[in-house]
Design a binder for these strands. Structure first.
Lengths: 229, 229
DNA sequence: CGAAAAGCGAGAGCACTGCTCTCATTTTCT
DNA sequence: AGAAAATGAGAGCAGTGCTCTCGCTTTTCG
């Protein structure tokens, strides 16, 4: 086996990622500098390329890791709700987990949901991790559907194909209305968090947490309502 | 008066902004390069600094201009609705104007609502233009309130102060519930557009326009409803 | 009108970036 | 033990934002 080198390699790789995350937290994702990481590491800049073939590959690794952490946070929040049939509590838990993670890791939120880095196209490796944080939400919709049909809402015909595909992905039989309600709630949560973290509530809302609560409760009513929405 | 120089200066300034916007559309806002602009202009890079003291100042000018165009688009859409009492039509018009503008100017949307450029803090000059696109929305809420009270919804106590301040800014007497409903709709619209433009609907929704329609209609029901929501 | 002042563009240069290539050293594999 | 692979150092290239100095031109003012 290749003991010494393999361990050293793993340690250095982890250290690079740690420093990258540290730097990102300090100066933002776009300011991430390979040379600065190398300096912190006591290495020359070209040595970094033994571990990551390019800055984009480093970013990809960071993105995958961040998606994973966010996903884990949301999963844990949902799993923490004992009464699995209490859909309001589960929705609240999942939504607030998203915001909490974002507030605690703003630079990572920017990395995942901000402006895509110019010239950087998210590679396929990121697709799967990216779906993890939504899995808790779709799982909620599936469980709700199993507990009884809701959300009889007319949806645009042009959306039917997408919803049908989504239904298959979900693995359940959630009606179109339920999917639309879920997607809308998703958009509202993501919008509220991004508005807050990207500074668009400055001079408008001093208590973004309270506003987020209101948004969550608003959509809780729609998600749980058997008819309206 | 200073005829020749003044005109030349205005022309060059406009040309710089034009090239900047062109470059932004091609490679994204973060890739905007002063030197590239200078090259396109047939000037040496240092000459640009006679017109903009720094890259950040150029960005600020672009941001202000973009906010202004977005605001104008939303205003025009709202003003285009003849029957001023048809709040559903006005909401639809304003919301779709936001998405249309975003889809037509994705790089500018990123500039306004994406990750803040690292080290760049939006100066006060941008605050006023930033409120313009929301004015149509708040105007709608004010007009609705004048037409009759709605949205009797319990709001978190911690949000009351913000809502009170917002009510003053609005210049009307919109109840807390109306403001919360409006803020939620705003978050949903912004979230839906950003999810679409930043690539988070890939492999999920093929018809983002149809999803946006659904989101808008969903919130139309809440905004117009006299009780639910 | 003519001199002083201000505006403007060119050019050189600094410190920084991502990335490539070569070379010596060290570890691993056969 | 010898070949092969991994690793880090160093130099170098092309690009970036930005500063400074030096002429030239336009504007302003006595």
């Amino acid at each position: 086996m290749s003991g010494v080198r393999e361990r050293a390699r793993a340690a250095t790789t982890a250290e690079i990622l740690r420093l990258a995350r540290e730097q990102m937290a300090a100066d933002g994702a776009a300011a991430l500098s390979l040379r600065a990481i190398a300096r912190d590491l006591g290495m020359v800049s070209s040595a970094i390329y033994r571990y990551f073939p390019s800055r984009d590959e480093l970013l990809t690794a960071l993105i995958i890791d961040s998606y994973d952490r966010l996903g884990a946070a949301v999963e844990a929040a949902d799993a923490g709700v004992r009464r699995r049939g209490d859909f309001r509590a589960r929705w609240r838990a999942a939504a607030h987990a998203i915001r909490s993670w974002a507030v605690e890791h703003p630079s990572e939120w920017s990395l995942l949901f901000g402006t895509p880095v110019p010239g950087y196209a998210a590679p396929v490796d990121t697709i799967l991790p990216a779906t993890r944080y939504t899995a808790a939400l779709t799982g909620l919709l599936a469980d709700m559907t199993a507990a009884g049909p809701r959300h009889r809402v007319a949806v645009p015909a042009s959306l039917r194909a997408d919803l049908a595909r989504l239904r298959v992905t979900l693995g359940g039989d959630a009606p179109d209305g339920t999917l639309v309600v879920g997607l809308t709630a998703w958009a509202a949560v993501m919008g509220a968090v991004s508005l807050e973290l990207f500074g668009h509530l400055h001079n408008v809302i001093d208590q973004p947490g309270a506003l987020f609560d209101a948004v969550v409760e608003q959509h809780a009513r729609i998600i749980l309502g058997t008819d309206p929405g």
